[in-house]
Amino acid sequence: MTNVMEGQARSNRSGMDKYLTFKLGREAYAVGVLKIREIIRMLDITEVPQMPAYVKGVINLRGKVIPVVDLRLKFNLTDVRTTERTCIVVVQADLKRNSGSHLGLIVDAVEEVISIPPCDVAPTPDFGSAISTDYILGMAKVKGTVKTILDIDKVVSTEGLIASAEIDS
């Protein structure tokens, strides 16, 4: 019994510092693997009117209608071409009122799942007001490169969407 418990605890702990890394343009980002539900290829997205540009619309995920956000537009990257490697990462985001909504994120390419021990995560540097860093958990140093760890709940929080929609309109 205790062995099982320990085993679970260990796997939980290891799950905690496992991250999925992906590319947006030339930049590398990471999201905690426990948040990821699945990765699907790019498919036709139904546009939803009167939404900010980075909300691409909705897709049919096996009968569930889930929103899709283009992270490249969200982060104001310039190159938003759709290629062979472009795909949708479906995450489970805990939005404020409704915990556990599914949400699709468009990324340029998914790389791998890696372990990032907490000691390798540096705090987010302060960019002043130029870049909002609310949704960044930290910067991970992996094999000589730097990957930004995203707090997915904050990136796509409803408040964020509505606020941006108001600004856009």
Binding site: Q50, V65, P67, N98
Partner: peptide, 25 residues
């Protein structure tokens, strides 16, 4: 339901999966 992401959009009542598998609003 379109979920809370789109609740600010009151011109839409929801979504439905159409015959070809795509979402229609």
């Amino acid at each position: 339901s379109l979920g809370e992401t789109f609740q600010s959009n009151d011109a839409l009542a929801g979504a439905a999966i159409l015959g070809d598998g795509l979402v229609g609003l």
